[in-house]
Simulated assay, not measured.
Amino acid sequence: MTPQELQAARDRIVPDVIAGGLSVLFCGINPGLMSAATGHHFARPGNRFWPVLHRSGFTPRQLKPSEQDELLLHGLGITNVVARASARADELTAEEFREGGRLLALKVERLRPRWLAVAGVTAYRTAFDEPKARTGPQDRMMGDTRIWVLPNPSGLNAHWTLETMAEEFARLRAAAQEGSPGGS
């Protein structure tokens, strides 16, 4: 992909991979330029979402971004807090995050996944005015949907290794497999 093709993808929207009643709806911060150019979520080669999803047991094999629709077969989906693509998440404004959070809440109310998994604690804090939120399950709910904040799988997030990230995703997978939104 040329730099010109990537720049042409700025501000594009990548369609959600969604359905009603999912076990987990993963939520990225916003699409990167590679995702916008290809139309596939988490498409940048250094992004660890797909390897972590497999290592944590959510998928039986590592899917490629171009196979994202297969997630629906596993009761999984993908959306974003902010729909528009940018080169970096720090190009987004707090207002965009808050509006994205409002629209995300409406989407979750309509689709009713068991869990909403927001990949990025800073995005979650800003979008939902939860400045003290930490990675893991949250007290806040959206209707009957529980919320789990995951580490951002971007290669820029050096605080989390592939292994520690897979462990956190696996904690969510175990909670999602418990069957009910309340964890009983």
Rank of each mutant, 00 (worst) to 15 (best):
W160F: 15
R98Y: 03
L53H: 03
G136S: 12
G39R: 04
P15C: 11
L72H: 07
K132Y: 12
V108H: 00
L116V: 03
L25C: 00
E178R: 15
D144S: 14
S184R: 14
V17W: 02
I29H: 01
I18H: 01
A158I: 10
H41E: 07
L104N: 01
N157F: 06
A170P: 00
E96V: 08
G182V: 11
L156T: 08
R140K: 15
R112V: 09
P151A: 07
V52W: 01
E167Q: 14
W115Q: 02
S35N: 00
F128G: 00
R48S: 05
N47Y: 00
E70S: 07
P153G: 09
E99C: 05
E130T: 11
A123M: 06
T126N: 01
A9N: 01
T38S: 15
G46F: 00
R88E: 13
H41Q: 13
G21A: 11
L116H: 02
G155I: 07
P65G: 04
S56V: 14
L53M: 07
E70N: 05
R140S: 08
E178H: 10
M165A: 13
A174M: 13
C27D: 00
D69A: 14
Q177W: 08
R110F: 12
M165G: 07
W160C: 01
Q7V: 08
P15V: 09
A119V: 03
L103V: 04
D11L: 14
K107Y: 07
E95K: 11
A117F: 03
L73N: 13
S180N: 08
A117C: 12
G143Y: 12
E91P: 04
L162C: 10
R84W: 06
A36H: 05
H41M: 06
V118N: 02
G136P: 02
G179D: 08
L111C: 09
P131S: 15
S86M: 07
E5R: 12
L6Q: 02
S184M: 10
R98S: 05
L33M: 11
N157K: 06
P31C: 09
R44D: 09
L72S: 06
I13N: 04
A8N: 13
P181H: 09
A36I: 07
M165W: 03
L106W: 03
E168Y: 02
T79K: 03
S56K: 05
E96F: 07
A43Y: 01
L103Q: 13
L72Y: 11
A127I: 01
